[in-house]
């Protein structure tokens, strides 16, 4: 899996919008191990992750045409599709109501990419890690569990042995703290 830059990935998605199968193959080669890791992290089940990964790339092929206007950086767009599909599947397995707006990343309108979308990914990653480290451990763990494992409030509450509303209240404040720190 070769490392690809932001603009290379954007060019590939642009070509996929034109039904360019070779570009689709290249995007798959460049990104499937990461998206598979996202699916696996949420679903913790190989066959389900593999099936979800297939749905993800079918979705990418079908909605590449709307990518140019949605304002997402390419990796975020791809990861968000993979994460949302995986969480949708996880909630179905748990018999919970659907919580992930599956197509949100494809349909949210935008005028232009925000400054954060244009920031270098490595910088973003370092900054986010720094800011997570400034939260209490259990708060940072909860944010990771929600993002990477698709944990719902009910699961965090159970894990923490705390009422759901209490957990929700401190997780919301943790997220606001995180935003404030990252935006500083």
């Amino acid at each position: 899996m070769a490392h690809r830059t932001h603009s290379e990935l954007e060019a590939m998605i642009g070509r996929i919008a034109l039904r360019d199968r070779a570009a689709f193959d290249r995007l798959y080669d460049a990104t499937s191990a990461k998206l598979h890791a996202v699916c696996l992290s949420v679903l913790k089940d190989r066959p389900e992750a593999e099936e979800t990964l297939q749905e993800v790339y079918i979705r990418i092929w079908n909605s590449a045409g709307s990518y140019a206007s949605n304002g997402y950086s390419p990796m975020t767009w791809l990861i968000t599709i993979a994460r949302n599909r995986s969480i949708d599947r996880l909630r179905k397995r748990q018999n919970r109501p659907q919580a992930a707006p599956v197509d949100a990343a494809e349909t949210i309108p935008s005028q232009a990419p925000g400054p954060e979308a244009l920031a270098l990914r490595a910088q973003q990653r370092a900054l986010l890690a720094d800011c997570l480290a400034q939260l209490e451990d259990r708060q940072a763990d909860a944010v990771r569990a929600v993002y990477l494992e698709g944990a719902a409030y009910a699961e965090i509450a159970e894990r923490e042995g705390a009422p759901l509303n209490t957990v929700r209240s401190w997780l919301r404040r943790s997220l606001l703290k995180l935003k404030e720190c990252v935006s500083r």
């Binding site: 899996m1 798959y28 499937s32 191990a33 990461k34 598979h36 890791a37 996202v38 696996l40 992290s41 593999e50 990964l53 297939q54 790339y57 079918i58 092929w61 949605n70 304002g71 997402y72 950086s73 990796m75 975020t76 990861i79 968000t80 994460r83 949100a104 990343a105 949210i108 935008s110 925000g114 954060e116 979308a117 990914r121 973003q124 990653r125 986010l128 990771r144 993002y147 990477l148 995180l178 935003k179 990252v182």
Partner: peptide
């Protein structure tokens, strides 16, 4: 959208996992 951008780099913590070749064939 900004929240998606802000949190997406969490996925960089994950170890890459190659999907089996059949996944691409099925796609």
């Amino acid at each position: 959208r900004e929240w998606h951008e802000r949190l997406a780099s969490l996925a960089d913590e994950l170890t890459l996992v190659m999907a089996p070749a059949r996944a691409k064939v099925m796609i």
